[in-house]
């Protein structure tokens, strides 16, 4: 029970990172982006490439920090992957979504994102193959926090949780303390009004894609660090990330943060009741529950249709 709760929090932190960018993009561009979760996969694989590269160039960097499977090269690779993924997100928007936005309606974009997701996933498959890849083959053992009830935690997971929280805190400070943050929130909450007030929408969209891409890359690396890489990472996280966004309320950054944790914890706890085969359906049940009880999400504003 407590173990499931804790594991849920850890998975939740990864979902949260993925949901931050999605909620902003969905709100600003007004479409459900089914390709968004593929950014996690781009990030994880980009980090894999850089990790191998750095480790080969400077072998000393391949030393793991005590207890963690994290190395210096992977740390640097993660930063590089965040930049690369952010740029890819901008590039994809520029090459595809922006053009479709100008021509067709938002729902065509939803479908375009289906196609983009399929392309990204299969390009990754073509390059890396479908087998499971690992940053490090060593198994990092869990620490026993308590024997009864059994409570185990892996050092990597603690690191991931802390790192995720640090990223979120930095983002919070930017949002709440800087002019740029105000502009960003203004656009996220009401794009039309913000534009009237003189916020350059096009530039903000680029920044949002950068941020979303970077956070997704971090989520992808963190996931792969505690599990493994596979071209299907994005596909696997699609529904959880959507669920987090809806739980939090589309457009609400803090909602997405909290939503990620709620989805993670609920999925973990659900296994107490449901057979594990049903776990893929869990995020969907959460979505349904939210839509029944509070359709606008925890922090969303009521929709006026």
């Amino acid at each position: 029970m407590i173990q499931n709760l804790m594991d849920g929090i850890l998975t939740g932190s990864i979902i949260s990172l993925g949901a931050i960018g999605l909620t902003m993009v969905m709100h600003m561009l007004r479409f459900a982006n089914f390709a968004y979760a593929e950014l996690l996969a781009i990030g994880a694989y980009a980090a894999l490439v850089f990790d191998r590269l750095f480790a080969a160039l400077v072998p000393v960097m391949d030393q793991a920090f005590g207890g963690l499977s994290l190395t210096w090269s992977l740390t640097l690779a993660t930063l590089a992957a965040m930049a690369i993924t952010g740029l890819s997100a901008v590039l994809i928007d520029w090459a595809i979504f922006k053009r479709i936005r100008q021509k067709a309606d938002a729902l065509s974009m939803v479908f375009a994102s289906f196609g983009v997701a399929l392309i990204i996933r299969n390009v990754i498959t073509l390059i890396f193959g479908l087998k499971a890849e690992l940053y490090s083959n060593d198994i990092a053992f869990a620490m026993v926090l308590s024997r009864d009830p059994l409570l185990l935690i892996k050092p990597d997971q603690v690191f991931v949780l802390v790192a995720a929280l640090v990223l979120m805190t930095i983002f919070h400070l930017v949002l709440s303390r800087t002019t740029f943050g105000f502009a960003l929130r203004a656009v996220a909450e009401n794009p039309a009004l913000a534009q009237v007030a003189g916020v350059p929408l096009a530039r903000i969209i680029i920044v949002v894609w950068m941020i979303g891409g970077a956070f997704s890359a971090a989520a992808g690396v963190f996931y792969a660090l505690t599990n493994h890489l596979s071209p299907l990472i994005g596909h696997n996280f699609l529904l959880p990330v959507f669920a987090a966004t809806i739980v939090g309320g589309i457009g609400s950054v803090y909602g997405a943060l909290l939503g990620g944790f709620i989805v993670g914890i609920a999925s973990g706890l659900a296994l107490q009741v449901l057979p594990s085969g049903y776990s893929p359906a869990m995020p969907f049940l959460i979505i349904l529950a939210v839509l029944l009880v509070r359709p606008q999400g925890l922090f969303g504003e009521a929709e006026q249709t």
Binding site: M26, R30, A32, V110, L239, F242, I287, L291, T305
Partner: peptide
């Protein structure tokens, strides 16, 4: 609800 919800819910 807004159209995104339908897309996501039906996917779910």
């Amino acid at each position: 609800l807004r159209h995104d919800y339908l897309a996501i819910a039906t996917f779910g």
